[in-house]
Amino acid sequence: MNANSDPNNFLPLKPAVFHILLSLADAERHGYGIMQEVLFRTDGRVKIGPGTLYGAIKRLLADGLIAESEERPDPQLDDERRRYYCLTELGRKVITLEAKRLANLVDMAHAKQLLNPTR
């Protein structure tokens, strides 16, 4: 396994990258669809602009965490210029490890009673 194929070498993820990978965890999406999924999932609290999104997509493609999908929706429902993205096996490992890392941090905060509503 070379250094670039070890999922741990990508951690911690930048917030925008985390949200992009998370949005692809359950479906293939095009860029605008990723932005909309992030807005919806975060109740509008996280907005990823086109510059941030497409810069991150370019890096994620180069790192092998996502791939351009070969599948296309019904042409009547789609714009042929759109590119659809999906997680690779490495990308799924990376987002899973990052989610576990973040869950561990939340567990530590609970142990320190930082998330206790009575305080």
Results as ranks from 00 to 15, higher is better:
A56W: 04
G31C: 00
H19Y: 15
V94R: 00
L13G: 07
V17P: 09
S69R: 00
R29H: 07
A62S: 06
T96S: 06
D63M: 06
I66L: 09
V94E: 06
D43E: 15
K58S: 13
L87M: 06
Y32H: 14
L65N: 04
R29I: 07
L60Y: 00
I57W: 04
V17M: 10
G55H: 05
L22D: 15
P73W: 12
P73S: 09
C86P: 01
E80I: 12
G33W: 06
S69V: 00
I57R: 10
T96F: 01
A56L: 04
A67M: 02
Q76E: 06
E37R: 01
L77F: 15
I34Q: 01
D26I: 03
L97H: 11
T88W: 02
A27M: 10
L22Q: 14
T42M: 03
E98F: 07
D79P: 03
Y54H: 05
H19D: 12
R45P: 04
D26E: 06
G64M: 05
R41I: 05
I48A: 11
P73Y: 10
K100H: 15
R29Y: 04
D78F: 11
L61M: 10
D78H: 10
L22P: 10
G64D: 04
Q36Y: 10
C86Q: 11
E71F: 04
V94L: 02
P73M: 11
R82D: 14
L87P: 10
R83Q: 13
G33H: 01
L90A: 00
Y84A: 09
T96G: 04
L97A: 11
I57M: 07
I48W: 10
Y85T: 07
G31R: 00
P12G: 10
E70G: 12
E37H: 08
P15A: 08
H19N: 13
K100M: 15
E70F: 12
I66F: 03
G64E: 08
S69I: 00
K47N: 15
D63Y: 08
K100N: 15
D26A: 04
G91I: 11
R41G: 03
G91A: 09
E70S: 14
Y54N: 05
R72W: 06
D43V: 12
R29P: 07
V46G: 02
R72L: 10
D26Y: 04
V94A: 02
P73R: 09
P75V: 00
A56R: 12
G33Y: 08
R41L: 11
L53V: 02
A16K: 13
A67L: 09
G64Q: 02
E80N: 06
A25M: 11
Q36N: 08
D74T: 13
L61V: 11
G49T: 13
E80D: 07
L21S: 08
L21A: 07
V17L: 08
L77P: 05
D43Y: 14
Q76N: 08
E28W: 09
I34K: 00
L77C: 11
T42F: 09
L65Y: 00
Y84R: 07
E28D: 14
E80F: 07
R83V: 13
A16P: 12
V17H: 11
S23T: 13
K100E: 15
E37S: 13
G44W: 02
I57H: 03
V94Q: 02
E37C: 02
E71R: 09
C86T: 13
E70Y: 08
T52L: 11
G49L: 13
I20H: 01
K93V: 01
Q36G: 03
